[in-house]
Design a protein around this nucleic acid. Structure first.
Length: 285
DNA sequence: CTAGGATCCTGTCAGC
DNA sequence: TGCTGACAGGATCCTA
């Protein structure tokens, strides 16, 4: 799914397009994609849009909120005077909606917000605004990289010392915001092999890793996420983190931009993982 | 408690 | 062409 930078990009975009709009009608096309009663939100106005890690919250004017998690393949596409689309990149951004992958349709006063999700892992749920902080997922979220000290990260790595470092930094209850792309990019930037046991990461390396995570994600936010945000307008700007900044992600077979060696793809913690074997040594010590 | 693997679901692509 | 297995920008659940 969209990782933290993409969700932040969505938040900013939606803030521009749907805030202060009234939800006229919600149509649920896939039962498992919408939890709670849609009727509670109908006729209510969106007054704020917040983000907790990779989760998005639309606050309404009746003390209820809509919590949205895109997981792997979720997308939010606003179709009004102009179109704003963000989330998992696909042709849906520009195609006619609703389509086969549309799970929920939120008819707003001046446009329509489509929730598309190929794999149905994502969801929208109705929640009382004051109960968000007690939500099982929200409650467990760790700090985002820029709120955390290197010492804190180091201690957490020590606590999970037998797991591969990549698995540890993908855990949202340990450090919040990284997903598969930014985990690979952060590890490459800090010259750490993703398979190394978390316990072998020195304080110095933890510091470098934290700094890299901040840098990689901030850069992506600044450029509008990785391929995600699309204004379908004449001059359409487009997020293009992968093209512009990715050093290893989806670059297998290509040359490392630092040493010229060949980037390879392997598997760590059950996820596709990209590394430069020359810059990131497994047997560091 | 940690660590690892299976699982939710649909679609696409490489390799026979 | 048709089939098969692997894989996918996430997180949870189950087991040892």
């Amino acid at each position: 799914m969209p990782e933290l930078p993409e969700v932040e990009t969505i938040r900013r975009g939606l803030k521009k397009f749907v805030i202060h709009q009234k939800i006229v009608k919600i149509t649920v096309l896939c039962e498992k994609s919408f939890l709670g009663q849609p009727e509670i939100t109908e006729g209510k106005t969106i007054i704020d849009i917040r983000r907790f890690g990779k989760a998005l919250i639309l606050d309404l004017d009746n003390d209820y909120s809509l919590m949205i998690h895109l997981r792997m393949t979720g997308q939010l596409i606003y179709d009004g005077k102009e179109r704003y689309a963000a989330g998992h990149p696909s042709d849906n951004f520009t195609s006619k909606l609703p389509n086969k992958q549309t799970r929920v349709v939120l008819k707003l006063k001046n446009g329509t917000l489509y929730f598309n999700d190929q794999r149905k892992f994502g969801f929208i749920k109705v929640i009382k605004t004051e109960e968000i902080k007690d939500d099982a997922f929200i409650k467990k979220l760790a700090k985002e990289p820029w709120e955390m000290t290197a010492e804190e990260l180091y201690q957490k790595l020590q606590k999970h010392k037998n797991s591969p470092v990549k698995a540890v930094i993908l855990d949202q209850t340990i450090i919040c915001g990284l997903g598969n792309i930014y985990a690979d990019e952060s590890l490459f930037m800090s010259k750490i092999h993703p398979k190394r046991k978390a316990g072998t990461i020195s304080k110095k390396e933890a510091e470098k890793l934290l700094k890299s995570a901040c840098e990689v994600m901030q850069k992506s936010i600044d450029s509008g996420g990785s391929t995600m945000a699309t204004y379908v307008k004449a001059d359409g700007t487009k997020g293009d983190y992968l093209e512009k900044f990715a050093q290893v992600f989806r670059r297998e077979g290509k040359s490392c931009l630092v040493c010229g060696g060949k980037i390879i793809k392997t598997k760590v913690a059950g996820r596709g993982t990209h590394i430069c074997p020359n810059c990131q040594k497994e047997d560091h010590a």
